[in-house]
Nucleic acid binder design. Structure first.
Lengths: 304, 304
DNA sequence: ATCTTGTTTTGTCTAGGACAAAGTGCGATA
DNA sequence: TATCGCACTTTGTCCTAGACAAAACAAGAT
């Protein structure tokens, strides 16, 4: 509960930083023998830093689709070789983007923003989102998972990206009478940047956007839809999300959101669902967004 | 664990939405007899919506300084009268700000941004932050706590405020050779808007700012400071933070952050601490920030 | 090949006990 | 009269160990 003495993390801290529930950490210890934290005078678990690293490696493999029983008990070496085997293949980046990542490591982070801004003006908003922002976010996430980039640099990059996006979004003013889209994520999903990419793309398609930000409780999403009566409700899910509660949330939304509202869901978390409620349109990747929306616009025009 | 059947919330959902830990919910039930959830076939707790409302009322009173033992057992009526007694006195808002809040309830949220933008150009950045943004955030928080504003509207307001701030920040370019300030919050503190207000104010003071965003783990803050060597590390704490872990974090930062870096901490969460580590400068309210920073700048000039 | 049916894995829940840190009250001291 | 130190109470979080439903998998039948 108390301070982390520079090296030993409490179960709460480990749970926060790794995203693994406290109960899960305890049950892994019981079942698989890992993690095996030290205990302080009070019998509380104290996780050394190296176990934390190992947990991160485990998380990455779980995200890649492996199962806990076959991953958690492995020692550091086995994990490393598995990582290499599963995650090795990787899309390379455009050289100009590598340049941005390089700037992250120098002592002058303010240059990143300039570079991004330059990319934006050169590529235009749509290409910027699809070809620069999305790959950068993915790549940074991978680098972090591999342990080759500290989290704070990923934060830093996200922050600069969001800054540029935040400036770009109001520039694109939707035409009069554009359809309204409500954007948000559900509780547990705290990545704002996906939402902003979508927002910018939507505006380019002539939609009016209302961004509620992240982690809006389901009943609040329902309330917002009831009050604002948007034509479309767009939700973003990252890969962290568990499937069961995700499905449950989608079903509840389908039931309670006004009939007139079209539901669309995107992000990695939802791409791997087998089936979704019938009213929900799934956007499997960002570049599928624009076509899907054109379809929605056509349909909507017909109904009215 | 599974879906909430429209009305009955699982302990996980209640914990998320109310911000009260799962263990705490269970121990309150044991000690004070409230909340007293229904049970599903599996013996799991199912919280009806009205208990959720009551929990929110309780949270508000706890934030106001009352103690759980004297608040949690109370029934709805007693809570209501207590709320009236404790929270009644309240700073009123400037008429132009009331206007903004009114726009929140209409169906046209895009107007809010225009209004805020107008305020910004009229008042200038500093006054905008101190006299518009901060009061609006406070007021919206109060309205939400009272139950007279749905959360999603508070989200909406924050989002618009952040949008305007995000646009305003790059406009203020620090002079050459300005001191670098690293901005972030620690895990558990997810309010980005305070950070952005501070960032804008700092830039107006001629500092170069690097915003890491929210919820950076302590060791990552240390890593960032070691790598980037900023002159100042600025942390923001809202009132949600518990005192003990807050102090622990501050102490650890004091120990591990490079000596040359000045530590400053602000926000309601830190204003009510009795004592802080000696290297940490506490900013009790936003308008104290500018003077404190001028002092730091002077001091720094002398050292170099 | 696709669907149905067992079997195993896995995350989250439950109960009640324990304890340290935070808060409170009271008496003693300057 | 105000401030400090010390005992007492409150309170959040941790602990163990057991249970079970939903998801993932494997195998057999159509």
């Amino acid at each position: 509960m108390t301070a982390s003495t520079a090296q030993a993390l409490s179960i709460d801290e480990v749970s926060r930083d790794s995203g693994i529930g406290k109960d899960t950490l305890r049950v892994w210890e019981r079942r698989y023998g890992f993690p095996q934290p030290l205990r302080n005078d009070n019998g509380e678990r104290n996780y050394p830093a190296d176990q934390m690293h190992r947990l991160r490696a485990i998380c990455r493999l779980l995200d890649a689709g492996l199962r806990p029983g076959s991953v958690v008990p492995l020692d550091a070496e086995a994990l490393a070789s598995l990582s290499e085997a599963s995650g090795g293949v990787d899309a390379r980046l455009d050289p100009s983007l590598d340049h941005v990542l390089a700037s992250l490591t120098t002592q002058d982070p303010s240059r990143i923003r300039q570079q991004l801004q330059a990319l934006l003006t050169k590529q235009g908003p749509e290409a910027f989102v699809l070809q620069s922002v999305a790959p950068l976010v993915t790549k940074a996430g991978q680098l972090w998972a591999q342990g080759s980039m500290p989290i704070y640099r990923e934060h830093l990059l996200s922050q600069q990206l969001m800054s540029v996006l935040h400036s770009a979004i109001p520039e694109v003013q939707p035409p009069e009478g554009g359809l309204q889209v409500l954007l948000t994520t559900l509780p547990g999903e705290s990545h704002a940047i996906g939402l902003m990419m979508v927002e910018l793309l939507l505006r380019l398609q002539g939609f009016e956007t209302i961004n509620l930000g992240v982690e809006t409780p389901v009943d609040q999403v329902v309330a917002a839809c009831t009050d604002l009566q948007p034509s479309v409700l767009a939700l973003s899910f990252s890969s962290q999300q568990k499937r069961a509660p995700l499905m449950a949330s989608l079903c509840e939304l389908e039931k309670r959101v006004p009939r007139e509202t079209v539901l669309i869901a995107g992000g990695e978390g939802v791409a791997r669902l087998r089936s979704v409620p019938s009213r929900v349109t799934v956007i499997k990747s960002l570049d599928k967004l624009a076509p899907a929306l054109r379809a929605i616009k056509r349909q909507h025009g017909r109904i009215r």
